[in-house]
C-alpha cells in the first residue's frame, strides 16, 4: 500500500499518493493547474514555470514538486496567476506567433492559455527573432518560429519512440530546437506517427498537409477554455 499524503490546495483538502507531484495529485482530484511543458505521458521537465504554485509561500513548479503531508499550496490566486500571465506574455513576444493564420489555432495550448488568462494583446515588445523552418521531411513540418522550447518533443522521442530526433542547441535567447542530422529532419529517423510529432503544444511540429481540416467551431478549445475538464483533453 502506497502512503496517502494529505495537503491543502487553495484551501481544499487533497489526498494523493506518496511520490506524486503536486500536479498529478491535483489532476486526480479534478483540479487543473495550468501547464505547458508538462505532458501526462512524459517525465516532467520543470522548464516553462507556468505551473508555478506557492508551496508554503515559496514558488515551486507543480509538475516536479512532490507532495508532502500538510503543505499549503496556492494556485488560483491573483498573485500566482499574474506570474503565469507574465510568462505567457513573454512567450508570445519571444517567438513569432501569428495565430491568425496558424493551423494550430483553436487547438494550440499556448493560445488557449492566453485566452484562459485573458491576454488579448501583447504587453511586451515583439522580439521578431530570426528562426528557421525545416520542411525537408516528406511528412513533417518543423516551424521554429512557433517553438516555445517546452522540450516535449525531445523527451517523447527518447522516452516513447526510443529515438533521439530532437535536442536543444544554443543558450538564452539563442536557444533553439534542433534535429540530429545535418540534412534536417529528413536525415533523421523521425516518422509521422512518432509520439514526438504529436506532443507539440503549439504549431511548431506539424503533420504535413493536414492544415485546417478541422473547421472552426470543432477545434479543441473552441467551446471550452483549456483545463476546463482535466488534462485529458489537451494534446494527445
Amino acid at each position: 500500500m502506497e502512503k496517502v499524503v494529505t495537503f491543502l490546495l487553495d484551501g481544499e483538502v487533497i489526498q494523493g499518493q506518496e511520490g506524486q507531484s503536486i500536479m498529478q495529485a491535483a489532476d486526480e482530484a479534478g483540479k487543473y493547474i495550468p501547464r505547458l511543458c508538462a505532458h501526462k505521458d512524459l517525465t516532467p521537465h520543470g522548464s516553462c514555470r507556468i505551473c508555478t504554485v506557492l508551496v508554503n509561500g515559496r514558488p515551486q513548479s507543480a509538475c516536479t514538486q512532490p507532495i508532502a503531508d500538510g503543505i499549503l499550496v496556492e494556485s488560483e490566486t491573483p498573485k500566482v496567476n499574474q506570474l503565469r500571465t507574465d510568462i505567457i506574455d513573454m512567450l508570445f513576444v519571444e517567438g513569432n506567433h501569428f495565430c491568425m493564420f496558424c493551423e494550430k489555432s483553436g487547438s494550440c495550448e499556448l493560445q488557449a492559455l492566453a485566452y484562459r488568462f485573458g491576454i488579448t494583446a501583447p504587453k511586451y515588445p515583439y522580439q521578431f527573432p530570426q528562426r528557421d523552418v525545416d520542411a525537408s521531411h516528406p511528412d513533417i513540418f518543423l516551424d521554429r518560429n512557433r517553438c516555445v522550447l517546452c522540450g516535449r518533443c525531445v523527451r517523447a522521442s527518447k522516452e516513447v519512440d526510443g529515438k533521439n530526433v530532437f535536442q536543444f542547441v544554443g543558450r538564452g535567447v539563442e536557444k533553439r530546437i534542433a534535429v540530429n542530422s545535418e540534412q534536417g529532419l529528413k536525415g533523421t529517423d523521425a516518422e509521422v506517427m512518432d509520439k514526438a510529432i504529436s506532443v507539440c503544444p503549439v504549431g511548431a511540429i506539424l503533420k504535413k498537409r493536414v492544415g485546417y481540416a478541422v473547421p472552426v467551431g470543432r477545434r479543441l478549445y473552441d467551446h471550452q477554455p483549456i483545463g476546463t475538464a482535466s488534462e485529458e483533453e489537451t494534446t494527445e
Binding site: F101, E103, V210, G211
Partner: peptide, 14 residues
C-alpha cells in the same frame, strides 16, 4: 515565401 502551401488560403486573407 517558405511557408507551406496549405497555409495559403488562410494566410493570404490577411
Amino acid at each position: 515565401q517558405g511557408r507551406p502551401f496549405w497555409e495559403l488560403p488562410v494566410l493570404v486573407q490577411r
